[in-house]
């Protein structure tokens, strides 16, 4: 077997091994079982979307993957190793961007926070910050305070700070939930182009079924009380995705229908 073939095989094997795995993870909080026996494997480079009715445990599942919660029983692993604390290669984009940014630091200062934590030397930070701001479409806003920015800009800034961590994995909790439809679609495409190129693994929680199918390689639907997997759909839609063509694709409509019926059934 040639070296190249072996390399390709090794890479394929690595891709098969899950990056993040929930192994019969159960979480009880305040005497209530929030997540029960969750089994889920996330492949490296995968874009996984999680949907489900309000209160079914989407955020909680994401916090388990982030290491912000530890399971009561079972395990959640990252590269086969149990997650005990948040780690820098796993970045979290919170829904409430207003609370996740430092109001006393400018846009540049907020990004700098992540660079400082990664011990990037001060003289390299300026160029890195500039590049990151450009990457998320905020060039020229370095000196603005978060309160001087619109919601969409603040969420872009939070994403830039997360990218400054140079994460291999992005955990996003309804990141566009509070934004208007136009801003939302723009940001969807930006997140896709930012993560697809760098093969970043993404777990993306959303209420919006269309958004889940549009973005994901796979969509998981959670059932409530306690949270567990109710449906799993592979999304076989061509990439790069396109706001018009993808959403009109027969497969998109079929998946949308299936997911819609599932959610409908859970809501009573």
């Amino acid at each position: 077997m040639s070296v190249v073939a072996r390399l390709i095989e090794a890479r394929a094997a690595r891709r098969q091994k899950p990056l993040i795995a929930f192994n019969a993870a159960t979480l009880r909080l305040g005497g209530k079982t929030i997540i029960e026996n969750l089994d889920l494997q996330v492949r490296p480079g995968e874009f996984l979307c999680i949907v489900g009715a309000s209160g079914c445990g989407k955020t909680t599942a994401l916090r388990l993957a982030a290491g912000l919660y530890r399971p009561t029983s079972g395990a959640v692993t990252f590269e086969g190793e149990e997650i005990t604390e948040p780690r820098r290669e796993v970045a979290i984009v919170f829904q409430d961007y207003g609370k996740a940014l430092l109001p006393w630091r400018t846009a540049a200062g907020n990004i700098s926070l992540a660079l400082e934590a990664s011990r990037v030397p001060a003289r390299e930070r300026g160029a890195r910050i500039e590049a990151l701001l450009r990457k998320v479409g905020l060039p020229g806003h370095a000196d603005k305070y978060p309160t001087e920015m619109s919601g969409g800009m603040q969420q872009r800034l939070q994403i830039a700070r997360c990218l400054a961590q140079e994460p291999t994995t992005l955990l996003m909790d309804e990141p566009f939930g509070a934004l208007d439809a136009m801003t939302r679609q723009g940001l969807q495409d930006e997140v896709l182009s930012l993560t697809q190129a760098s093969e970043t693994t993404v777990i993306f929680v959303t209420h919006d079924l269309d958004e889940a199918i549009y973005l994901g390689d796979r969509v998981i639907g959670l059932l409530p009380h306690p949270g567990r997997i109710g449906i799993e759909l592979d999304v076989d839609l061509p990439r790069p995705r396109d706001q018009l063509a993808t959403r009109e694709h027969p497969e998109f409509l079929r998946l949308r229908r299936q997911l819609f019926d599932f959610i409908k059934a859970t809501e009573h």
Binding site: A66, L68, P86, R87, R88, I92, F94, K99, A100, A117
Partner: peptide
């Protein structure tokens, strides 16, 4: 202090 900021700090391993 906004608890969310402590979570940001934790995820940055500050």
């Amino acid at each position: 202090v906004e608890p969310r900021l402590y979570e940001v700090a934790r995820s940055l391993q500050m």
